[in-house]
Design a protein around this nucleic acid. Structure first.
Lengths: 203, 203
DNA sequence: CTGTCAATTGACACAGTGTCAAGTAATAAA
DNA sequence: TTTATTACTTGACACTGTGTCAATTGACAG
């Protein structure tokens, strides 16, 4: 009888690695994190990493899933989905995503950097952005259903713009480079989006 | 008497290298261009590159200056500077910069990618972005002088937003990823900027 | 004919990723 | 007690790309 106290492909170690990667990526804002560093922090050798993840890209991608799971990226979207009006939904989505960015920033930076050379990384990050785009699309669609979408842009175009506005790079530039607070960032993006997409209430 | 047909630190070769780098960077959109490739295209050996540029970062930076020179990046700003009204200046600046981006995109991508690891590259790209920011600032200031700057944002804040809006990454996302035409990109950015910064003309 | 200068050739150091083979320590099963 | 299995270690090595160095070549100039 096998009472696997330490079952095949040890999940404890795997999680220790993911935690280590996450920690290091956030601490260094995604720059200069080597396999060696992650291994050291996880308390194993560099080679042992490859018993769990076959490439650096795979480890990075697994880290994103781990963060999503721990941080509950899905539940964050609940307020957005249950919003009554299109405007509320837009606001809620911007808040949800805008609040999530700083939590994944290090990992995102590393994955984006890898995307330049590694196809798997590019595909994984592209998929995540595609997922995020659906949130943008849903918000714009809600606005459109309320007949509140400005005629300046088509729904597709508005989705593209909102999607671009919410890019990690823009968050990075405004908060890190320009020194904005997180609150100011969120408020400004909301104000920009509202100004661009929501029909003025002329009283 | 030395009639230097081939003066010290041969400028012909230097230029051939810069042209080769430029060509390759644009062709491959800044990805995967190695010193070997540039040397080959310039018709010299990889090692000979180092007789002209001491590092890859230095070569990339020199390439940006070369492009600026050939493409006359300065003259492009003339219409912006001579604009009569703030709104015109804003439009002219967006057109100038927005038209310039596709010409430097490959090089910009490569330099941004290097910035993750190389401090010299980061500094050089940061400087270019700082220069561009001055154009944003001037446009916003012109708007403010005309009393046409919306009270929603302070001049500093408006500058930060315009600067972010005009980032290369946003151009990349809208044109390359979303498939927008260059014209649509320019028009949309103009419309977004006008909507965000220019006071409505209530008649 | 001699010096200079750009460029070549071939070698090597270094960092980081990924691979492989042999060994170890713990745990489980016969 | 012996035997297998599993997770991990150790040490070595291949590969890529950057950057360096020493010795050599070929051209041109005085």
């Amino acid at each position: 009888m096998v009472l696997d106290t330490m079952s095949s492909d040890n999940p404890e170690t795997r999680e220790r690695i993911l935690k280590a990667a996450w920690r290091l990526l956030e601490k260094s804002q995604g720059r200069g994190v080597r396999m060696t560093d992650i291994a050291k922090r996880a308390g194993i050798t560099r080679q042992a990493l490859y018993l769990h993840f076959s490439t650096r890209a795979e480890l990075l991608i697994a880290t994103t899933h781990y963060i999503d799971e721990v941080r509950g990226s899905d539940e964050r979207l609940a307020p957005s989905r249950s919003a009554q009006t299109g405007t509320e939904r837009l606001d809620a989505f911007i808040t949800a995503w805008g609040t999530y960015i700083p939590e994944i920033y290090g990992m995102a930076k590393a994955l984006i950097a890898m995307s330049d050379t590694d196809d798997a990384a590019a595909k994984a990050w592209g998929q995540r952005m595609e997922d995020m785009r659906e949130g943008c699309e849903a918000a714009i669609r809600a606005l459109n259903s309320d007949n509140m979408l400005s005629s300046t842009y088509s729904p597709d175009q508005a989705t593209d713009i909102l999607w671009t506005l919410l890019a990690v790079r823009n968050w990075e530039q405004l908060t890190i480079t320009c020194g904005w607070s997180q609150e100011k960032y969120i408020e400004t993006v909301k104000s920009l989006a509202r100004g661009a997409f929501v029909i003025e209430n002329v009283s």
